[in-house]
C-alpha cells in the first residue's frame, strides 16, 4: 500500500456535541469536536477517564447519536439515519473490537468470526477468511467456543470478526485493556499490520501510551474537546505530551 490513499477521509465529526442528561444533571461528553480520520491510517484516541473518548467512538461508529453537529462515515451523515439504516451501516461498513465480551459464548470461534456475514446472510470470501485466520494464528482454534480460548485468543477472534467483512473502518475500544502485555502486543501488532498490509482504517480508543504508540496519529481528548495531536508517536513522546497536558 502506498501513502497516497491517506488523502481519503474515512470518517469525521463536525462540531460534534453530545450532552447526557438534562438541566443541572446534564453532562457534556463531547463539546464541539471537529475531527477527521484519514483512510488506511491507524488513529489512536487518548484521554483521561471521562474525557469523552468512548462517546466519540460510539458516535462516529453509529452506536450513539450526537446532540448537535454531525458525524460522517465516508460521505454518509449518520444523524438522520434510522435505527435500521444505522444497523445495516454497522453491519456492512464498520468493524468492532471491544475491551471485553466481544464474542457470543454459544458460537464457535469460526462462527463468531463469520457472525456479521451470517447476520447479513452473505457468503464469506473463503480465501480472505483463511488469510485472516492464518495471520492471526487461529487455525487450530476455530472449532472452540470462547470459554475454551485464552484472553488473547478471544481478542484475536474479535479482530478477525472486525476484519472479515472488509469494512471501511474498524473501531477498537481498549482492545488490549484486559490482556497481559505479551498478548496485548501481539494483538496491536496485528492491527498495525492490517493497516500496513491491507490498507485498513482503524480508530482505537486507549489510555495506554504503549498501545497508542502502534498508531500513526494520536488525538488527545480532555473534557470533550480535542486538546492536542501527535503524528508518528512513540511511547515516550506520548508520555511527555500527556504530562504537559496534565500539568
Amino acid at each position: 500500500m502506498t501513502t497516497t490513499a491517506t488523502t481519503r477521509i474515512a470518517a469525521r465529526l463536525v462540531d460534534a456535541t453530545k450532552i447526557y442528561g438534562e438541566g443541572t444533571a446534564a453532562v457534556t461528553a463531547l463539546d464541539g469536536v471537529d475531527l477527521a480520520f484519514e483512510g488506511a491510517r491507524f488513529t489512536a484516541i487518548m484521554g483521561p477517564s471521562g474525557s469523552g473518548k468512548s462517546t466519540l467512538l460510539h458516535c462516529v461508529a453509529g452506536l450513539d447519536v450526537l446532540t448537535s453537529g454531525e458525524a460522517y462515515l465516508g460521505d454518509t451523515a449518520l444523524g438522520s439515519l434510522s435505527d435500521r439504516a444505522l444497523t445495516l451501516l454497522r453491519r456492512e461498513r464498520v468493524g468492532f473490537v471491544f475491551q471485553a465480551f466481544n464474542l457470543i459464548p454459544t458460537l464457535t470461534a469460526a462462527e463468531n468470526i463469520l457472525l456479521p456475514l451470517l447476520i447479513a446472510r452473505r457468503a464469506p470470501d473463503r480465501a480472505w477468511f483463511d488469510h485472516i485466520v492464518d495471520t492471526l494464528g487461529l487455525g487450530h482454534r476455530l472449532d472452540h467456543r470462547p470459554a475454551e480460548l485464552s484472553g488473547g485468543e478471544r481478542q484475536r477472534v474479535a479482530a478477525a470478526r472486525a476484519l472479515v467483512t472488509r469494512p471501511e473502518i474498524v473501531f477498537a475500544d481498549e482492545p488490549s485493556g484486559n490482556l497481559d502485555s505479551r498478548s496485548g502486543a501481539e494483538l496491536l501488532g496485528f492491527l498495525r499490520r492490517a493497516v500496513d498490509d491491507f490498507g485498513q482504517t482503524i480508530v482505537m480508543v486507549t489510555h495506554d501510551p504503549a498501545a497508542a504508540a502502534y498508531a500513526d496519529r494520536v488525538v488527545f481528548l480532555d473534557d470533550g474537546r480535542v486538546v492536542d495531536e501527535l503524528e508518528g508517536p512513540t511511547a515516550e513522546r506520548i508520555l511527555d505530551r500527556m504530562k504537559s497536558l496534565g500539568g
Binding site: L88, R90, R91, L115, I119
Partner: peptide
Amino acid sequence: LLRAVGML
C-alpha cells in the same frame, strides 16, 4: 454485541 455488529 449482536446489535453492534449489525443485527437488526
